[in-house]
Nucleic acid binder design. Structure first.
Length: 511
RNA sequence: GCCGCGUUGGUCAAGGGGUUAAGACGCAUCCCUUUCACGGAUGAAUCACGGGUUCGAUUCCCGUACGCGGUACCA
């Protein structure tokens, strides 16, 4: 029987989740669902100095918003818990010691200063970052260079120490990446990475291997920034559990900043005025808020869709996918090798498409919330439903519903007078006075009736209807934009329409 | 510096020894609309460079350039 597919998303709770992080979660999720496997959320909080309050909750909320709920997580325990690495601390020491016993790792007592001394001593323009490796380790204070007695004495005295992996001198480590194929590394270029830190916490390198093994992870997918340290992980697998037990790897391409080059960072969001985090993230240290896609008016379906195709496609022309379609069609092998620049305009296009795709009823809760956030609570749900239908095609973001539809719920406070004054005259004033009366007696207040009445009256008075429509629009909405003017008038209702016409007539000083 | 990974229009990208090198976003023009959008049509714009291999390379190989990532007791 085949082993059950198990994948994990393993973020560090150090801040908001940006596009790349969510996409990694998404690809893991899609792969798990496609194979009826498990999707695990593991919190990698081994660096206590980088602990950020709220970051972990942010991860849960983001996954929830995106619909990527894990099968096992710190919140939803399973048979392989705990799922927070800080709570697994004691597990790692045991494995680190095993490596020491096997001669594949060793104790090292170097202080931060000693390490810095070594680096500055060997640092040259050609070698700006000297490594702790097979050459230099003999000159450092560790169990390999010290006598057994001295090491024993230091250990007995509880001297602060780390455990480092002993990287073999001349080997080639191969890795089969599901996206990149065979990737190989020369071990003589690798350094003796710290596995267990002085505070007893593991580094990522040890923790990822131990936990992937213990949690029976079958496929380990992560960002490309991990590729250079992958050979270290392969070696740890080999020494601890056997390479045949190792999960299959895939390293996802990075998401790059829209302009220039480099990995997308939170700075770019502020700099370019675009969201890069899934949801608003308030930095507890600075109090600064970095805006998110959700608050910018993105639908989760669109956000997920956009992310899925940023670095993957199924080879057809299809661009719009529901999560179900993604589960059916996604494949790791078709994920790109090269990084992709993020394009906010295209992201908005996806959202626009999803706004058109959803029903008015499905849109309703999002739009209602958007109005509430703008301090314009809507009491009449029916009316809001009607507005959604009226303006949806011209909205790219949920927040656009407010700008496009607010006219219905608030009387214009000011008018774009420049649009009408130049051509305004007595004749037109008279037209609107009469139109108030005429339309007021209409049997049915419907857009088509209004338009007919309006045009008939214009013809009667010998004025081009087109020249009167703009003034009417300004009266009703205040500005030159918006849905067809008679549609607006229809949803506004009789009383409000007349009131608004009268308002502007008054403002223009009609006797 | 060294190591790794990349490189098809401005961006996302399909393709993969012989093609008019798809499609989408954006842009431009036109149509629709007497508003602004939506929508529709059309258009401009691409295989990083140099060597091979081959009857033929965007596609395969090797270099070079460029970009990114890594080079921490961070993940």
């Amino acid at each position: 029987m085949e082993k059950k597919i198990r994948v994990r998303f393993a973020p560090s709770p150090t801040g908001g989740l940006h596009l790349g992080g969510v996409r990694t979660a998404l690809y893991n999720y899609l792969f798990a669902r496609q194979h009826q496997g498990d999707f695990i959320l593991r919190i990698e909080d081994t660096d206590q100095s980088r602990y950020i309050p709220g970051a972990e909750d942010y991860i849960y909320e983001t996954l929830k918003w995106c619909g990527l709920e894990p099968d096992e997580s710190p919140l939803k325990s399973g048979p392989f818990g705990p799922y927070r690495q800080s709570e697994r601390k004691k597990i790692y020491r045991e494995y680190a010691e095993k490596l020491v016993q096997a001669g594949r790792a060793y104790y090292a007592f170097d202080t931060t200063e000693e390490l810095e001394n070594m680096r500055s001593k060997y640092r040259t323009p050609e070698n700006p970052s000297p490594q702790y490796d097979y050459r230099s380790r003999e000159n450092m204070r560790n169990a390999l260079s010290l006598s057994a007695g001295e090491t024993g004495r230091l250990m007995a005295a509880n001297t602060p120490h780390v455990i480092r992996i002993k990287i073999p001198e001349k080997e080639t480590v191969h890795l089969q990446d599901m996206i990149r194929g065979d990737v190989s590394f020369d071990t003589s270029l690798l350094d003796d990475k710290v596995l267990l830190k002085a505070d007893g916490m593991p580094t990522y390198h040890l923790a990822v291997v131990v936990d992937d093994h213990l949690m029976q992870i079958t496929h380990a997918f992560r960002g490309e920034e991990w590729l250079p340290s992958a050979p270290v992980h392969v070696l740890i697998w080999r020494y601890l559990f056997g390479e045949d037990q190792m999960p299959r790897w895939a390293h996802f391409p990075l998401i790059l900043k829209p302009d220039g080059n480099g990995k997308l960072s939170k700075r770019d969001g502020a700099r370019l005025g675009i969201p890069i985090f899934a949801m608003d993230w308030k930095d507890p240290a600075t109090g600064e808020t970095i805006t998110g896609f959700r608050e910018n008016g993105f639908l989760p379906q669109a956000f997920v869709n956009m992310l899925a195709v940023l670095g993957w496609n199924d080879g057809t022309e299809q661009e719009l996918y529901s999560i179900q379609e993604l589960i059916a069609k996604f494949s790791i092998e078709r994920v790109h090798k090269a990084g992709a620049k993020f394009n906010y305009e295209k992201a908005k296009w996806f959202n626009h498409e999803w706004i058109k795709k959803l029903t008015v009823a499905e849109l309703f809760p999002y739009v209602k919330k958007a109005f509430e956030e703008k301090s314009l609570p809507v009491s009449d749900d029916q009316q809001l439903l009607a507005v959604i239908g009226l303006v949806r095609d011209r909205c790219s973001l949920i927040t656009d519903f407010y700008t496009q539809g607010k006219f219905l719920f608030e009387t214009p406070k000011q008018w774009d007078l420049n649009a009408i004054q130049p051509k305004w005259n007595e004749q037109k004033k008279a037209f609107f006075r009469d139109y108030i009366v005429q339309s007021g007696s209409l049997a049915e207040w419907r857009a088509d009736n209004l338009e007919t009445a309006f045009k008939e009256l214009a013809a009667e008075k010998n004025i081009k209807a087109g020249e009167l429509q703009l003034p009417l629009r300004i009266m009703l909405v205040g500005e030159k934009t918006g849905p067809p003017v008679f549609e607006i008038s229809a949803s506004l209702g009789r009383g409000e329409t007349i009131k608004r016409i009268q308002n502007l007539l008054d403002a223009l000083g009609v006797p």
